[in-house]
Computed example of a mutant assay.
Amino acid sequence: MRKSLYYLSLLTSLTLVSCSTILNNLPGVYNLEIQQGNIIDQAMVNQLQPAMNKRQVLYIMGSPMLDNVFHKNRWDYVYSIEPDGEDRVQKQISLFFENDQIVGIQGDFKPGAAPAIKSSGEITIDVPKRDLDRTLWEKITGLFGYDDVEDAPKPEAKSSPGSATVKLPL
């Protein structure tokens, strides 16, 4: 009786382990990429400058992931992602403050030597003024031979002369 219970428990445990392995590696099954923590990239770290205050750092990096009660002058940012069954990638950076100004950076990122210039992300396009000859209704009636509409006076456009400026995000 004891031996059969042992084999039954061994068979059950092997079945459960193989099911999880098989289910995790099925082709065509979508696995979610779950990002955890603050998204940190090198461009953000390059914007950090010595003697920046906490408010400026908060604007660039966002709120810290860990708020340590024992170290109020240390902000820790942690980012973790496990893409499509690959190994987990975890990056962290710690910022140290003294007198409400940044004095040190420690972690997986190093600030760049050149000052970072952030582009606005907008471009300006000059759109020329469009001269509307006929309305859509006038064009449709012109196809059927009702050209007497063309003799009617055209309303003046209310837009100012010249070109319009449109800002588009990149």
Rank of each mutant, 00 (worst) to 15 (best):
residue 155 P to T: 04
residue 160 S to I: 14
residue 127 V to H: 07
residue 96 F to W: 15
residue 103 V to P: 00
residue 112 G to D: 07
residue 90 Q to H: 04
residue 116 A to L: 11
residue 106 Q to D: 14
residue 36 Q to R: 13
residue 53 N to T: 09
residue 100 D to A: 06
residue 117 I to R: 08
residue 92 Q to Y: 07
residue 50 P to C: 06
residue 73 N to G: 02
residue 50 P to G: 12
residue 144 F to G: 06
residue 168 L to E: 12
residue 33 E to I: 10
residue 29 V to F: 11
residue 128 P to C: 02
residue 124 T to K: 05
residue 144 F to Q: 05
residue 32 L to H: 12
residue 114 A to P: 05
residue 67 D to W: 09
residue 27 P to T: 07
residue 114 A to G: 01
residue 102 I to N: 03
residue 79 Y to E: 08
residue 111 P to A: 06
residue 33 E to H: 12
residue 43 A to F: 01
residue 149 V to A: 05
residue 37 G to L: 02
residue 125 I to T: 05
residue 46 N to T: 10
residue 163 S to V: 11
residue 56 Q to R: 12
residue 76 D to H: 03
residue 36 Q to M: 14
residue 64 P to I: 00
residue 82 E to F: 03
residue 162 G to C: 07
residue 125 I to N: 02
residue 78 V to F: 07
residue 115 P to C: 10
residue 28 G to P: 01
residue 138 E to F: 00
residue 64 P to N: 04
residue 169 P to R: 14
residue 67 D to R: 11
residue 99 N to D: 09
residue 29 V to C: 03
residue 141 T to C: 01
residue 125 I to G: 09
residue 149 V to W: 04
residue 45 V to N: 00
residue 37 G to R: 00
residue 91 K to H: 12
residue 100 D to M: 04
residue 129 K to H: 13
residue 89 V to C: 10
residue 30 Y to Q: 14
residue 49 Q to A: 08
residue 44 M to C: 05
residue 96 F to M: 13
residue 108 D to R: 03
residue 166 V to W: 01
residue 91 K to G: 02
residue 41 D to M: 03
residue 119 S to P: 15
residue 141 T to Q: 04
residue 98 E to D: 09
residue 99 N to S: 09
residue 50 P to H: 04
residue 155 P to H: 05
residue 39 I to W: 12
residue 49 Q to K: 12
residue 47 Q to G: 01
residue 54 K to L: 00
residue 48 L to M: 06
residue 66 L to M: 10
residue 125 I to R: 05
residue 164 A to T: 13
residue 50 P to L: 13
residue 47 Q to D: 03
residue 29 V to Y: 12
residue 161 P to V: 09
residue 113 A to K: 09
residue 45 V to R: 00
residue 147 D to F: 10
residue 81 I to H: 12
residue 140 I to A: 12
residue 39 I to Q: 07
residue 81 I to Q: 06
residue 76 D to L: 10
residue 38 N to L: 01
residue 24 N to Y: 13
residue 66 L to S: 08
residue 63 S to M: 15
residue 99 N to R: 11
residue 33 E to C: 05
residue 115 P to Y: 02
residue 60 I to N: 05
residue 86 E to K: 09
residue 64 P to Q: 05
residue 37 G to V: 01
residue 169 P to A: 07
residue 68 N to Y: 06
residue 99 N to V: 15
residue 169 P to K: 10
residue 34 I to Q: 13
residue 79 Y to P: 00
residue 29 V to K: 15
residue 139 K to D: 09
residue 106 Q to K: 08
residue 104 G to D: 13
residue 111 P to T: 00
residue 140 I to H: 09
residue 98 E to S: 08
residue 118 K to R: 12
residue 157 A to E: 07
residue 167 K to W: 10
residue 40 I to R: 00
residue 136 L to W: 08
residue 37 G to T: 00
residue 69 V to N: 14
residue 65 M to Y: 15
residue 25 N to L: 11
residue 165 T to G: 03
residue 102 I to V: 02
residue 94 S to R: 02
residue 90 Q to C: 12
residue 153 P to W: 10
residue 72 K to R: 11
residue 137 W to E: 14
residue 109 F to H: 02
residue 24 N to S: 06
residue 153 P to E: 07
residue 128 P to L: 04
residue 65 M to C: 14
residue 161 P to C: 03
residue 76 D to F: 08
residue 143 L to C: 09
residue 139 K to R: 09
residue 25 N to D: 04
residue 83 P to K: 13
residue 121 G to D: 11
residue 80 S to F: 00
residue 118 K to C: 06
residue 89 V to P: 00
residue 94 S to C: 04
residue 90 Q to N: 13
residue 51 A to L: 11
